[in-house]
C-alpha cells in the first residue's frame, strides 16, 4: 500500500517536471518543425535567473511569499529575451533548411549558450532553496512529501490546461493549429506564419525557462544542467508523438511512473527505463502515441 502510494506520488511529481520541460519543446517542434536542442539552455537560463534573483531577494529580507512570483517573472523575462534574441536575431534566417540541419543549428546555439551561461554566472552553484522549504511537508500514509512538489503538480496541470485551452478553444490557437497541420496552406490563406513562428518560439523559450525556474529551488543550479534534460525531454516528446502537447503529457506520465516503479522495485534498471519505454512505444507505434497524421507524398 505504502509502496503503491510512493510510486504514484513520486511518479506524478517526476512526470509533471518532465512535462514542464517537454511542453515547450513539442510546441516549437509542432509549429516550426525544429527539434530545439537549445531548449536545454532555456531551462538552464531560467534556473540560473530564478536562483540568482531568489538569492538576492532573500538576502534583502523581503517577504518570502512573493518569491514565487519572482520565479515566474524571472522565467518570463529570461524566456522573452533569449527567445526573441535567438529567433529574430538568428533562426529566422535559417528557415527552410533541412530538419536535421536545424537540429545542428540549435546544437550550435546550445554550445554558445552553455559558455555564455558560464561567463555570466560562473561555475559556482546557485541555491534558491527558500521557496522549496517554505511550504513545508505533508505526511501521506506514513511518508512525507514536500508541498512544493504538490504545487509543481498543480502548476503543471494549469500549464497543460492553459495550453490545451488556448490551442483548441481560442481563435489564435486554431490559427496555430492550422500552421501545425500545413504551414504552406495556412500561409496561402493569409496567416502571418512569420509572426506565428516568433510568438511560438518565445512561448516555447518561456516554457523552458519556466521549467528551469520552478526546478531551481529544489536543486543546486550548476553548469551542465541544461544538457542533462535535453534527452529526457526528447524521449518524452518522441513517445508522445512529436508536436503533440497532449502526447507529451501522456509521454511524461508514462516515463515518470515507470521510472518511479523501477526505483522502488528494481533500482538497477533506472538507467534503462526511459530508453526501454521509448523503444517499446516506438516498436508498436512507430510515430509515437499521438502523432499528427500527415499525408503521404506520392
Amino acid at each position: 500500500m505504502n509502496l503503491a502510494l510512493a510510486v504514484l506520488v513520486d511518479g506524478v511529481v517526476y512526470s509533471s517536471w518532465l512535462f514542464l520541460i517537454a511542453a515547450g519543446l513539442t510546441l516549437i517542434y509542432g509549429v516550426m518543425k525544429i527539434l530545439n536542442m537549445a531548449h536545454g539552455s532555456f531551462y538552464a537560463i531560467g534556473a540560473y535567473s530564478g536562483a540568482s534573483l531568489i538569492g538576492v531577494y532573500f538576502a534583502g529580507g523581503n517577504p518570502p511569499w512573493a518569491s514565487y512570483l519572482l520565479l515566474v517573472g524571472a522565467a518570463l523575462v529570461a524566456g522573452l529575451i533569449v527567445g526573441l534574441l535567438i529567433e529574430r536575431g538568428f533562426l529566422r534566417f535559417m528557415y527552410g533548411r533541412d530538419e536535421v540541419v536545424m537540429i545542428l543549428v540549435t546544437y550550435g546555439i546550445l554550445l554558445i549558450l552553455e559558455d555564455a551561461i558560464k561567463l555570466l554566472w560562473g561555475v559556482d552553484p546557485y541555491f534558491a532553496y527558500q521557496p522549496y522549504t517554505l511550504l513545508g511537508r505533508t505526511k501521506i500514509g506514513g511518508l512525507s512529501f514536500a508541498n512544493y512538489d504538490f504545487m509543481l503538480i498543480c502548476v503543471t496541470a494549469l500549464v497543460a490546461l492553459v495550453l490545451w485551452w488556448s490551442l483548441n478553444r481560442t481563435r489564435s490557437g486554431k490559427i496555430l493549429q492550422s500552421v501545425i497541420h500545413d504551414r504552406e496552406m495556412a500561409g496561402a490563406l493569409g496567416v502571418n506564419v512569420t509572426k506565428i513562428f516568433t510568438i511560438t518560439f518565445v512561448i516555447g523559450a518561456f516554457l523552458g525557462a519556466f521549467a528551469g525556474a520552478l526546478t531551481a529551488p529544489g536543486i543546486s543550479v550548476v553548469p551542465g544542467i541544461g544538457i542533462e534534460v535535453i534527452i529526457l525531454a526528447f524521449a518524452v516528446v518522441v513517445i508522445g508523438g512529436l508536436g503533440s502537447v497532449g502526447g507529451a503529457f501522456v509521454g511524461a506520465l508514462i516515463v515518470g511512473l515507470s521510472r518511479a516503479l523501477s526505483v522502488h522495485l528494481y533500482p538497477d534498471g533506472e538507467l534503462f527505463v526511459i530508453y526501454g519505454v521509448m523503444g517499446l512505444v516506438l516498436a508498436f507505434r512507430p510515430q509515437g502515441l499521438f502523432a499528427i497524421a500527415g499525408a503521404r507524398k506520392i
Binding site: A6, D10, L143, E228, R259, V263, P267, L271
Partner: peptide
C-alpha cells in the same frame, strides 16, 4: 535495506528519497 544508483547529474531524487524512507 536499499541501494539506489540514480544517473549522474540526475538532479531529481524524489523517488529515491521515498525508497530510502520506505
Amino acid at each position: 535495506s536499499t541501494k539506489q544508483f540514480p544517473k549522474i547529474y540526475a538532479g531529481q531524487y524524489g523517488a529515491e528519497v521515498s525508497a530510502l524512507m520506505v
